[in-house]
Design a protein around this nucleic acid. Structure first.
Lengths: 128, 128
DNA sequence: TATAAGTTAGGAATGATTCCTAATTTGTAG
DNA sequence: CTACAAATTAGGAATCATTCCTAACTTATA
């Protein structure tokens, strides 16, 4: 296992405490509270390293900045297209015939992770 | 039905001819070939209008610019995370218990559209 | 024909992210 | 320890996609 720099460790430790899909900016502000000298580019660069190392997930939004999530047990995300709220859900795609259909139609084998669905959440639906 | 401006019509007509999920820039270059005075902001603005009017879909990518697609029959997209290729597939989420599970766990009712999956396509898999 | 509403071209502004550079830290081999 | 290489940093400039701004122009309306 590769050694992590102090800054990289700090970033990972803060993400471990968070359960609200923080943005890079969120993480930057939190880490900066403890390590005022840290720079934004260090946060961005290390977030990419942590994604590559499989420690965290990057969630690409249809609008606004990317969000990050510690890899705990496998789960998926569903995003409200009105308010942008992200909710977790667990659904074992392995068991589903979706995988088979995709393989047949496109030749792509999905991993079951990195999947984002979209919809309108109940809060927003009530406002319509 | 609202009247569309000449530029808006031009943009929609070009998207009707394309089956390769063009970006706003792609569309801008094509329309500019026929109407050299058109501006980029006109293309962006009208793409948003066409999405709101339900004429086209916007596909948000995990990397790079958004892509657009005429709304023909309902279908979903799967994106290769290596090469960025976008493939269509049709899978009727209405028939699936995914919808039920999502409703139970998150309160969100998905529309069955605007869903993007990710994986690694067979071309890229061969290169690994 | 006058007025209002909608739309445009062009470019400036914005927001998120990456890139660049010189300085600093860390790892390693003698 | 010591010296050199490799990795990483802070800070800010640069980039990219997109939106915003404004004055001019079209189109609809009455």
């Amino acid at each position: 296992m590769k050694n992590y720099s102090r800054q990289r460790e700090e970033i990972l430790r803060e993400i471990e405490k968070l359960y609200n899909h923080p943005t890079a900016e969120d993480i930057y502000m939190i880490v900066k509270g403890k390590d005022p000298a840290i720079s934004r580019s260090t946060v961005y660069r290390n977030l990419n390293v942590l994604v590559e190392d499989g420690k965290i997930n990057k969630i690409s939004m249809q609008a606004g900045p990317d969000r990050y999530d510690l890899k705990r047990q496998p789960h998926n995300h569903i995003i409200c297209t009105k308010c942008g709220k992200i909710l977790d859900f667990d659904y074992n795609f392995e068991l589903d015939n979706l995988k088979k259909i995709l393989k047949e139609q496109t030749g792509i084998e999905i991993s079951g992770e990195g999947i984002a669905l979209e919809g309108i959440c109940s809060d927003c639906k009530n406002l319509l």
